[in-house]
Design a protein around this nucleic acid. Structure first.
Lengths: 335, 335
DNA sequence: CCGATCTGCTAATACGCATTACTAGGCCGG
DNA sequence: CCGGCCTAGTAATGCGTATTAGCAGATCGG
């Protein structure tokens, strides 16, 4: 068995030129080039007999695009711990990429330093892809501004602050609005002493949530993440409803409260401002909201495709979160 | 609009020829063509500044390496249901690819038909990658033999039967040995009426397990997967130990048995021949074995790399499964 | 019966890259 | 001062395909 068949081989066998083979293959029937039925049939017969298939590489070489979308994650793509959290994003991305007929290139070659990757290193291969999706809790502003400056087509999954002058394309979740909504609901139920638990800064997603919280509860307490002592402080301040950035932390907090003999939501309402970044056991349904992760992935691919095909569209999208009317938020005791 | 950069662009910017750019990029220092340090640096500087990367398609067209490994999954890469099952494979693949400095190309462009993908379709892009890893429960023999015939470098994750005459490179798990071992253990404990639950055919992984089972328990019962009526049959045949292909099915069976007032393992020992293909709740630790999934991923990448660099090695590897001495296998009642 | 139009096809080219062959200029030894 | 050899590159070519320009022969209109 010799090497791969080419159009030349087919041409030779059918006693026509390579051009004719190509024309027949692609069904080209322009004014300047037409192939009569009998010649066409002769070529098709040879193609059928040999099982010839055009080399996709040579084919794509002539076109501008590669049909490859890059996926750059600022943490590992398949980390065991946060796998469950990132999975829906990737799932949505895969789904849309499949519909577009694009392959996904995971930039695993980017060296990991201090647990995170950087797009820009000495051998960055970003340009292999037509454009890329950026994923991760936090993305350094320099990276974003450089990407914009170099006109590299990309879309961030998750809202990012614009570095000076540059517009960062993204498909994010509207954490601020969702947090404001659930906070307002708690106030309506009669809670007056409320607290926010989480970093509230650093990543945009954290800042947005805190912002939404303070919009509705300007004097609400803000504590950093969850150890036993957080519970102490909450109780010391007679907090009756707590809003936790990460569902996993929320679960830990609820657990700790119950371990101390408190009831949830009776003594303490616990609201989760998103999904779990690590596995959680127990089957409470936490009040709060879910991040539309799969949809974010899908829409990010859609936006990237729009950018790549030169369409003029809004580059920044916020999707609504899905509110969850769970079992961990109720009226405060005594009302 | 910054069109994609080419070597010509780099050449123009660095005031050299395209050839020189190519030579610098590939570190060619043959007798006939050498580039002095200052010219080289000038070119490299431009490359760094522009972030130029060679077009992988054009590169592959000339039979070079790309530092891209393909990942072809015969089911969706990120399916919600079996995510947990496939995750460790991908995790291992990612880890090794990262060490090799390779990116991963997920062939999401392959159209899904009847829930599965096929490598060979009219626009297959396999050759963009240097070589590929194949993943999935079942891979059609035609696909494998065609891959071998076309001399495409690939490694299957999971043992595959060789199609006629062809040798399929793989890194698999030794299901037969592991199943034989746990079956033997059950017999040692005194079980005499044992059954195997699962397809036992179709995929190599199923066949191997059944084979291992029958090696040790030639007259053991074989039932197809788990509904309520499976339990009926088991009880009707006075089975005391059952070996289930899928941990998820094992869990369902144990659940059903308990619902009927039986104890596990008292009345019925339940052995899981592998990991769960879908989420399972309950926190039993099932006796049986685990599939060394992450290691399989790692080793598959290693084997592919060896193949790509032309090393002569064994193309077929079986890894031992990790035996689990869980809580669902004990002596049969009355012993 | 001669130019114009049509028919059926092919030669040439381009895509981006790697590679081979080759050249122009400098240097050295004899 | 001439032939050989080294240096630092470049021109040319080919990979397999799609596309454009164009050519030879047939047909047709006037």
């Amino acid at each position: 068995m010799s090497d791969r068949l080419t159009q030349r081989d087919i041409a030779r066998l059918a006693r026509v030129s390579q051009t004719t083979v190509s024309l027949v293959l692609n069904n080209r029937t322009t004014a300047s080039a037409r192939i009569p039925a009998d010649t066409r049939d002769r070529v098709l017969k040879v193609i059928r007999e040999t099982g010839y298939v055009a080399d996709p590489l040579a084919r794509r070489l002539l076109q501008q695009r590669n049909q490859i979308l890059g996926v750059f994650t600022y943490e590992s793509v398949f980390p065991s711990a946060s796998a469950d959290f990132y999975h829906p994003f990737l799932s949505g991305i895969e789904e849309s990429a499949e519909q577009l007929g694009c392959d996904l290139l995971l930039f695993t070659s980017a060296p990991v330093t201090d647990g995170r990757r950087l797009v820009f290193h000495d051998n960055n291969r970003l340009r292999i892809a037509d454009g890329s999706l950026l994923l991760g809790r936090r993305i350094p502003a320099e990276e974003l501004s450089r990407l914009v400056a170099e006109k590299y087509p990309f879309v961030s999954v998750g809202r990012r602050d614009n570095p000076d002058g540059a517009v960062v394309p993204y498909v994010g979740a509207d954490y601020a609005a969702a947090t404001a909504t659930v906070t307002a609901r708690a106030l309506q139920l009669g809670h007056t002493r409320v607290a926010f638990v989480g970093p509230g800064e650093g990543a945009e997603s954290s800042a947005d949530r805190l912002k939404g919280f303070h919009q509705v509860a300007p004097h609400g307490l803000h504590l950093s993440p969850a150890k036993g002592e957080v519970l102490e402080k909450l109780l010391g301040q007679q907090i009756t409803a707590v809003f936790v950035e990460d569902l996993a932390d929320a679960a830990a907090l609820a657990e700790a409260a119950r371990a101390r003999g408190l009831t949830v939501p009776g003594d303490l309402s616990v609201v989760a401002l998103g999904d779990a970044s690590r596995p959680v056991d127990g089957d409470d349904e936490y009040s709060g909201f879910h991040i539309p992760r799969k949809e974010m992935g899908r829409r990010a691919v859609g936006l990237l495709e729009a950018v790549l095909s030169g369409e003029e569209t809004d580059l920044q999208h916020l999707l609504a979160c899905e509110l969850v009317d769970g079992s961990t938020l109720s009226k405060p005791k005594g009302l």
